[in-house]
Design a protein around this nucleic acid. Sequence first.
DNA 1: CCTAACTCGGATATATGTTGTCCGAGTTCA
DNA 2: TGAACTCGGACAACATATATCCGAGTTAGG
Lengths: 160, 160
Amino acid sequence: MRMSGGVEWAVHCCVVLTDVERPVPAATLAKLHDVSMTYLAKQMQALARADLVRSVQGKAGGYVLTRSPDDITVLDVVLAIEGPEPQFVCTEIRQRGPLGTPPEDCRTACPVAKAMLKAEAAWRGALKEVSIGDLVREVDRSSGKDALATIRAWFGGDAA
Amino acid sequence: MRMSGGVEWAVHCCVVLTDVERPVPAATLAKLHDVSMTYLAKQMQALARADLVRSVQGKAGGYVLTRSPDDITVLDVVLAIEGPEPQFVCTEIRQRGPLGTPPEDCRTACPVAKAMLKAEAAWRGALKEVSIGDLVREVDRSSGKDALATIRAWFGGDAA
DNA sequence: CCTAACTCGGATATATGTTGTCCGAGTTCA
DNA sequence: TGAACTCGGACAACATATATCCGAGTTAGG
């Protein structure tokens, strides 16, 4: 049940894409984070499909956020990469086998599934509370405002 | 990031193992739920390693809970099957690449990781709030007390 | 005390999903 | 008009989850 490593990449990409002047290519993002360029491209495609980033093609193309970082939650990013399916799926095991509970006694959801889905809801709720904008402010506070400013300048200048 | 299907099996097994008179073999549990006998055996082994159930060998062997169902949380079962590793692992991506944040500016945890781990803590907390005993009472309430009683009688009698 | 049957336990294949890579379609700028 | 640069989806390699088998150990009964 480990979360895809691409989620971490995608969140960091959204953070550094905040307040960029021009679109940033996937190759530049990959070089910045020192990760596989082709695989990160795959993650960015998923973000584009979820309409979190807008892809611009052509010579000066790249990726830009579609809306304010305060309107993009971490949950949005996680679901875009991992898919919207819940982590727990109830197979109605109680109805199977020789002593399976008859359907008429299954009006309410299986207690096991209820507990699992409640926990998952708590998880999603916590992720929904945090926006990309919150993360940007937190990075500014903990690592200094220069950190992100330097990266933006590097985007604009010669991203060797 | 889908949760292992074996978790659902394991939780249901713990529920039906409540208040059994004699040890119940894995084969009987598999037949009850109409699932792969050999694979369920693997899950029961994991529960035994986590000391949630005690395995009894020999002719009249099987599995029994090691303690009161009120003292076994759903989180215990999930961790026993899925492993104790957290679902999100921070790779310190902020320190990598040409503009990596220097270690002296990383005294505090990465904001991205903090958000993820906080959500995971909420998830674990919710799972810890529910015990196997709670699930037993919930099943008795929703499906009638006969449901589990019939299963226990089937264990004691001829589990064909 | 011995035997025999039944149980669990770990080592072993297969299927599915994640990780990583490649080349073609489309767009923009000169 | 052309050429270079971008994204986008199709294509392999790897890891994990799933499913299975056979041997070690134990117990009940004769």
